[in-house]
């Protein structure tokens, strides 16, 4: 039986100057799924997201989203299909206010002329207020985003994805650099998003991953080492060898 996957990557390969960052990956993602990708440094996790979002072009292989190939599209075209990304380091517009950041993220026409003649509608204002509520930044709506704390910046970036109403959210280390309390809040946020949205989360923090209780894909040296539930992955001897053997170090350096 052929299943309708939301995102399919097949035979994906990308090398940089001879170094194979992604090596013949086949990846299938269901609609509404929450997937976690783990792997040691240099496993190719971020490169994989780069390939999906059009930041890098693969050497070979295809990526299809809802059955349409997206391999040759530009970043903004892929975004407009409903794929949003949060970067590893928070990337928000530091000189814009929190409100403006969300405004720029809002779903809607993105052409030059429509932006010139754009007037904020009340429904847009309401949507922004909603998102501000979800990410808990209502009070900081009118200060420059550069003044936010690290965790707040991460949330703002997630908020921009929410404003976008992206169907597929790619989150690169969403809990990095957060306090325990913030991490927990982030975890809850992700869990509420799953179902309505489809998520791919890259993380190092094992407690956080366990909490998400999602299907886990392990990347190692550009290949998929194994895939399955957290327990299944944890018990896989190959994973223990290449990755969980270094678990403690990963714990000590959650930001690496």
């Amino acid at each position: 039986m052929k299943r309708e996957f939301l995102l399919v990557a097949e035979g994906l390969t990308k090398s940089f100057d001879g170094f194979k960052a992604i090596d013949n990956i086949n990846f299938y993602l269901d609609r509404g799924e929450l997937r976690t990708i783990i792997g040691p440094n240099g496993a190719g996790k971020s490169t994989f997201l780069d390939l999906i979002t059009g930041r890098t072009r693969p050497d070979s292989g295809t990526i299809t989203y809802r059955g349409n190939p997206i391999t040759r599209l530009r970043e903004y075209e892929i975004y407009r299909l409903g794929i949003g990304r949060k970067f590893q380091t928070p990337s928000i517009y530091a000189h814009h206010t929190v409100f403006e950041n969300l405004l720029l993220g809002l779903k809607g026409p993105r052409g030059v002329f429509s932006s010139i003649f754009h007037r904020i509608s009340s429904s847009e204002k309401n949507r922004i207020a909603e998102v501000l509520e979800i990410i808990g930044l209502t009070e900081k709506a009118h200060i420059p985003a550069g003044l936010l704390s690290h965790g707040q910046k991460q949330w703002l970036e997630i908020g921009m994805l929410l404003a976008q109403e992206a169907e597929l959210l790619l989150l690169d280390e969403p809990a990095a650099g957060m306090s325990d309390e913030e991490t927990e809040k982030t975890g809850n946020l992700l869990l509420t998003l799953a179902g309505g949205h489809t998520l791919i989360v890259i993380e190092h923090d094992m407690t956080f991953i366990r909490r998400l209780a999602s299907r886990v894909t392990v990347l190692h040296q550009g290949r998929i080492l194994c895939e399955g539930s957290f327990e299944h992955v944890q018990n896989d001897p190959r994973v223990q060898e290449v990755y969980l053997g270094r678990k403690h170090r990963a714990h000590n350096q959650p930001n690496s």
């Binding site: 903004y76 975004y79 990337s91 993220g105």
Partner: peptide, 9 residues
């Protein structure tokens, strides 16, 4: 780059 990933050409 962020602008590109926010869907603006």
């Amino acid at each position: 780059n962020r602008v590109l990933f926010s869907g603006y050409a």
